[in-house]
Design a binder for these strands. Structure first.
Length: 1057
RNA sequence: GGGCGUGUAACUCAACGGCUAGAGUGCCUCCCUUACAAGGAGGAAGUUGGGGGUUCGAAUCCCUCCACGCCCACCA
């Protein structure tokens, strides 16, 4: 017989089976092999980040699904990989280089910096993938991708090219969130808003031509006054009506600006009712300018956040200095009216933690709204003139134009069910966000990323002749194949002055000609020469090689890289080899399930659907599973700076990978958040000390391991709580974060380990044969029925992505039914072949059911079982699979389901529990005790059949049953109503206490009886409720009456009456 | 302001219109019974946030109030 160690050793199991699985190659998906495909692409973790509990949850859930489908016989692919995470990674490496070498990125240069980031990436990618492996993730590691690798780059290039060609990508001036520190634009979602101490200044501008007339306005950002191009009031505001159309003087830069009326911008209730308009530095003002283009737009900032030449005398000043100077100057002019301190919500950049500056700059956009793209020609390489139209038609339910745009395509896919969300409510965030159809700014002023494959030149023509010469006679455009079917490059030409896309060059040449001719016709000596005309020429090329040999040197490649999400958006098809028609793409696309968290539903999920549909015509995945976010015990997000984070690797170290996985799967409910109370682990003795709020964010410098516990349990030594510490402190070691919630999984693993150990020790002479339920004793039928019911429930839960239910179901069945009851009952039947087969068969089933969640444990038990019982099976006898990874999922056990037997055993359990309660409450010594039990015929038969139960009563009671047991006439005996056992208790109990207890019970039962009587007396209930509910109420009425009778008799006996 | 969610035992969560609202942890009592003390047996502990309503029947559905969380928008 196989003798296993006394406890489950997670570490040994992990190293052993990881190696075994790798060697066997179970996780490699081969498109040539049979089986219904089931594919998941991993949400690629950021290469620079360490894995946190969110990753642990996210990846464990994917692994559960993949392992489960693999066991079901699917051809299962889990595609792993990492994300280059543009801004985050570059920022980290830049900071590192600055800290170590005191060099900025400009000192290094583009190539050197990118080279350094690649080195960094190689190192951290290895680490992060290794961590995933340690968690047991059964990814197809041979296929590991990176969003910047050649395969992905090819897909990115192809997508950009097609979008450029088809007019989905355009160049536009836009107000972007400018990070003046990193000197890049950042997306809305890469910013956060924080209440910040600021001010609310009130100034006045003098009205031109009306001495002593001023108009007052307030602002939170005085420095932007340099860029004011108007003052704005509400059209119906009586106070200012007469001033609309007048001008005021901006005294600092000596510019006259108009007073305009705009009901959307000005709110008469707010401040003075008059607001300054700075289109280039405020999103609302920008919108106002779009409605009132005549006021003009003036950018006053340099990319580094200092004031530019438009700021006149303030040029060169940093923003805060400019603010001081402007206020001072206004004050000196007597135009400053006062300042109020105010807390202002200010946007910050997530990466550099510096304030965001709304900044006007040239960016590349992907058009989201509906339009009619004309391939190869009419791309919209201009600022959108339809901004207002967008606003009117926004919303997922807005009327559709003929040709749905990217956003609409993605909306439709969810609305018609091609993509389904679990839980369904998350569809809302997706649809609402896409419904806005806001264009997507895809350029980033970074070096780390996919470089934008567009070459640009500006050609300025001083004579119309030159235009013609440049465009036609030199043959430049023809060569570049504008409008032809060139599939390597596309060229677009834009008139610089107004951004008009030029598609008809003959017409354009004629237009310029006409202007010149008009000038010549005037025939005066001092005719001004025609204004020079400039054209911006953009060439997008699919291939760098082609670009090198074909694009004239006057063109330069765009310096920017693409938003990280651009490559992430392609992930489901790019990783499978698109645009090549690979076998993988054909077999696994569309993928099956995407598992992610709710905060990237818009950023990532929506964009994957869009690009998937655009590139392949098919949705990227059918199901989107959104799992909760893991919070600490106070419901707050985990973060490094708070120090309330838990490292999954520490959990693996402390409790094992199976326990970690079991824990996080248990947390995966359908709620938004899950709480995981965090403890500090004493670095000296390992005791877990629950984290308090004051321990967070470095507010507590020192914790002393509690000394009031027994010696040896805690050590009483001081340490530093887990937190944002930058340095090591030799005196005070820093605690790790952990959580005792993972004990549940560890204990469960050990329980199963020991159940297996017990079974394997008792398999002397084991042979296997199929089991016929009809020929088996009650308890065997019962446990097989419970196994079948559990297996079905687990399968249902997985199908519906109710993960926490999976762990709960298996835990309850394995521990509370199999171990606590069936194994105990089996102890009287050690050599019974049927019992051995049931033990092995049920254990085998449990191992399969827990396999997806606890793969290391499952494999350990599986291999042990294979040694002793290599041939097994409940319905047919066959050799077991060589690994739990590829063991068949139990889904054909329905024949064992037997409700009658489950009911009998449930009654028996009640009875046994009742006896145990009496023993525990009253019989503290081990005096053997005669216990007579009277029960009805059905129970009696069951009990006779289940004779070994007597042992469950503790081995000190005798157990008599049958129809004719008389109540012993013995003073001090007590009858428990729920099982009618007569227990002699003379001298063992305190009559007063017990009387009280019984009185309380009588009150409760009487109340319940009254309710039941009332119910049954209610005609509506008898008619309206389902018959089985009525029947059950009738039964419980009879039962309650008996119970009350018994209780009253007990009470009378106790009180000696 | 708009949307989504949460509130059940001391803590973390189940229960999704129907048996006396259940687990795990913690707490109390007993037990190292040869699978397991990372264990076994039992116990105490709940006005299901408050208030209305619908229903024969509500933790569950509706209304309302309170508290909390997340997302989006706005805040000169």
């Amino acid at each position: 017989m196989l003798e296993l160690p006394k406890a489950y050793d997670a570490k040994i199991a992990q190293s052993k089976w990881l190696k075994f699985w790798n060697e066997k190659g179970y996780f490699h998906a081969d498109p040539a092999k049979p089986g219904e495909p089931y594919a998941i692409v991993i949400p690629p973790p950021n290469v620079t980040g360490a894995l946190h509990m969110g990753h642990a949850l996210n990846n464990t859930l994917q692994d559960v699904l993949i392992r489960w489908r693999r066991m079901q016989g699917y051809n299962a692919l889990w595609m792993p990989g990492t994300d280059h995470a543009g801004i985050a990674t570059q920022a980290v490496v830049e900071r590192l280089i600055f800290n170590t070498e005191k060099k900025t990125r400009r000192d290094l240069g583009r190539d050197a910096l990118v080279e350094k980031i690649w080195q960094w990436k190689d190192k951290y990618e290895k680490r992060i993938l290794g961590q995933l492996q340690e968690m047991g993730a059964s990814c197809d590691w041979q296929r590991t991708r990176f969003t910047l690798d050649d395969t992905c780059a090819k897909a990115v290039r192809e997508t950009f090219f097609r979008m450029f060609r088809d007019g989905y990508i355009y160049r536009g001036k836009r107000l972007v969130n400018w990070d003046a520190q990193l000197q890049t634009s950042v997306a809305d979602d890469e910013t956060y808003t924080e209440d910040t101490k600021g001010g609310f200044w009130t100034f006045k501008y003098p009205v031109v031509g009306q001495p002593e007339t001023f108009i007052r306005f307030s602002t939170t950002r005085p420095e932007t006054m340099l860029g004011d191009t108007a003052l704005c009031v509400h059209p119906s505001d009586e106070r200012y009506k007469h001033l609309i159309g007048q001008k005021v003087l901006q005294p600092l830069v000596n510019r006259e600006i108009p007073i305009i009326a705009d009901g959307l911008l000005a709110d008469p209730e707010l401040g003075t009712g008059c607001v300054k308009v700075t289109p280039a530095h405020d999103p609302n003002d920008y919108a106002c300018w779009q409605r009132n283009p005549q006021i003009g737009i003036l950018n006053i900032l340099n990319p580094d956040g200092t004031i530019n030449v438009n700021g006149g005398p303030y040029a060169g000043l940093a923003r805060d200095k400019a603010r001081e100077a402007v206020v001072k100057a206004m004050d000196e002019l007597g135009l400053f009216e006062g300042k109020e301190d105010r807390v202002i919500p200010l946007k910050y950049s997530d990466r550099s933690k510096t304030p965001i500056e709304p900044y006007l700059s040239d960016q590349w956009f992907v058009k989201m709204s509906d339009f009619e793209p004309t391939p190869h020609r009419a791309g919209d390489v201009s600022p959108p003139s339809d901004a207002d139209a967008n606003r009117v038609t926004r919303g997922a339910d807005a009327p559709r134009s003929e040709k749905p745009g990217l956003a609409q395509m993605a909306i439709d896919a969810v609305k018609d069910g091609r993509v389904q969300f679990f839980p369904k409510r998350y569809e809302n965030s997706y649809l609402d966000w896409l419904g806005e159809k806001r264009d997507w700014c895809v350029s980033r002023q970074l070096w780390w990323g996919h470089r934008i494959p567009v070459w640009h030149a500006r050609i300025t023509c001083t004579t119309p002749h030159q235009v013609v010469a440049s465009f036609f006679q030199d043959g430049l455009i023809e060569d570049l194949s504008l409008g032809s079917d060139n599939d390597v490059a596309v060229c677009k030409v834009v008139r610089s002055s107004d951004g008009e896309l030029i598609t008809d060059f003959v017409a354009e040449a004629k237009r310029v000609d006409d202007i010149v001719r008009k000038n010549e016709d005037q025939d005066t000596a001092d005719v001004p020469l025609p204004e020079p005309v400039s054209y911006d020429i953009y060439i997008c090329s699919l291939s760098d090689e082609w670009a090198k040999s074909h694009i004239p040197p006057v063109f330069t490649q765009d310096e920017d890289v693409l938003d990280t999400w651009f490559s992430s958006a392609l992930w489901p098809h790019s990783t499978l080899g698109w645009p090549e028609e690979t076998p993988e793409l054909k077999r696994y696309y569309p993928t099956s399930t995407l598992v992610t968290s709710r905060d990237i539903i818009t950023l990532w999920v929506a964009r994957m659907v869009m690009t998937g549909l655009y590139n392949t015509g098919e949705v990227p995945f059918k199901h989107v599973v959104i799992h909760p976010k893991i919070m600490d015990g106070f419901g707050e997000g985990m973060s490094k700076s708070k120090g309330n984070g838990v490292d999954p690797l520490d959990i693996i170290e402390l409790y094992g990978a199976d326990a970690m996985r079991f824990g996080v799967v248990s947390l995966a409910t359908e709620t938004q958040d899950s709480r995981l109370p965090v403890s500090n682990v004493c670095p000296h003795c390992g005791t877990l000390i629950p984290q308090k709020k004051e321990h967070q964010s470095g507010r507590t410098r020192q914790i002393v391991c509690p000394g009031d516990k027994p010696a040896g349990v805690t050590c009483g030594k001081p340490f530093r709580p887990s937190g944002p510490w930058l340095d090591e402190d030799p005196e005070l070691p820093t605690a790790k974060g952990a959580s005792d919630r993972f004990e549940m999984g560890r204990n469960f693993a050990n329980k199963l380990w020991n159940a297996t150990r017990f079974i394997l020790m008792n398999l002397e002479g084991y042979t296997n044969a199929p089991l016929d339920p009809k020929a088996l004793p009650t308890e065997d039928r019962w446990i097989l029925s419970r196994l079948a019911t559990t297996a079905k429930a687990v399968t249902d839960a997985l199908n519906a992505y109710r993960f926490s239910e999976v762990t709960r179901l298996v835990y309850d069945f394995a521990w509370n039914e199999f171990c606590d009851w069936y194994i105990e009952m089996s102890k009287g039947r050690r050599t019974d072949p049927a019992c051995q087969r049931v033990l092995v068969g049920v254990l085998d089933g449990i191992v399969r059911l827990i396999g997806p969640v606890m793969p290391f444990l499952a494999e350990s038990l599986w291999q042990a079982l294979n040694e002793v019982a290599p041939t097994r099976g409940l319905l047919e006898s066959k050799p077991a699979e060589e690994s739990a990874c590829i063991a068949a999922w139990p889904n054909d056990l329905g024949v064992f389901i037997d409700d009658t037997t489950e009911g009998s055993i449930a009654r028996m359990q009640d009875l046994v529990r009742g006896v145990r309660e009496i023993r525990n409450r009253y019989i503290l010594d081990k005096t053997p005790l005669d216990l007579s039990v009277k029960c009805n015929d059905v129970v009696a038969m069951e009990l006779n059949a289940l004779a070994p139960f007597v042992k469950l009563l503790g081995g000190i009671a005798t157990f008599a049953c049958g129809p004719a047991v008389k109540k012993p006439k013995q003073s001090g005996s007590i009858v428990r109503p729920d099982f009618e056992a007569y227990v002699p208790l003379a001298g063992l109990i305190d009559n007063a206490t017990e009387s009280k207890k019984i009185e309380k019970e009588i009150t409760q039962k009487q109340k319940l009886l009254d309710v039941t009587v009332a119910k049954l007396g209610n005609e509506n209930f008898v008619k309206g409720a389902p018959p089985e509910v009525v029947e059950q109420q009738r039964n419980s009425l009879v039962e309650l009456e008996t119970q009350l009778k018994t209780l009253r008799a007990n009470l009378a006996e106790l009180q000696g009456t």
